[in-house]
């Protein structure tokens, strides 16, 4: 019987599990939206939300308590100033988990975890990243094309290799 058994072990020892949760929380607060496996995502909710609730208090003691878990000073600073301000009066439920389907390779169920109040900001950021990526790819393509044109007359490549 698994009565009163809370949480997931995630196939890790307790210290490994603690480190995983700390790393995931740091990433979540830093990037506002992260992609991970469904089990880790669900486990992350309780861990991260407790810290955010703690941060809402805003005094030195709570800051020290949060520092115990999050080793990145910049992230703690951001949490206590910007994130707490944005979250406002929300009584818990600061994160959202959305399922994404299964990943290739090991068929693990994947999910996105995001801070609820950062949905639009995270989307806008992703859009910008995508635009940059696309622009870079286009530039590279054009460069390669130009190189090919330069090479062709010099080397007198037979038609077979020209196709490449």
């Amino acid at each position: 019987m698994r009565h009163n058994v809370k949480g997931r072990k995630l196939g890790r020892t307790s210290s490994h599990r603690k480190a995983t949760m700390q790393a995931l929380t740091t990433s979540l607060l830093k990037h506002k939206r992260i992609k991970t496996t469904l089990a880790k995502a669900k486990e992350l909710r309780t861990f991260a939300e407790k810290l955010i609730t703690k941060a809402k208090k805003g005094d030195l003691h709570s800051q020290r308590q949060v520092m115990d878990y999050l080793k990145d000073k910049d992230v703690v600073k951001e949490l206590f100033s910007e994130i707490v301000e944005r979250i406002g009066d929300r009584p818990g439920g600061y994160t959202r988990v959305v399922k994404l389907g299964q990943r290739f390779g090991d068929a693990a169920h994947m999910a996105l975890v995001e801070l609820v109040d950062y949905n639009e900001i995270a989307t806008a950021k992703e859009e910008k990243q995508k635009e940059e990526r696309d622009a870079k790819a286009k530039e590279k393509e054009e460069k390669e094309k130009a190189e090919q044109v330069e090479e062709a007359p010099v080397a007198e490549i037979p038609p077979e290799t020209e196709k490449k």
Binding site: V98, G101, L112
Partner: peptide, 22 residues
């Protein structure tokens, strides 16, 4: 798309954009 999952082609779930497809 699969139910209860974000749409893989547009990245939307519950009327909200969750990710930008590649």
């Amino acid at each position: 798309k699969l139910t209860h999952r974000a749409c893989p082609s547009c990245g939307y779930y519950g009327g909200r954009s969750m990710f930008i497809p590649k």
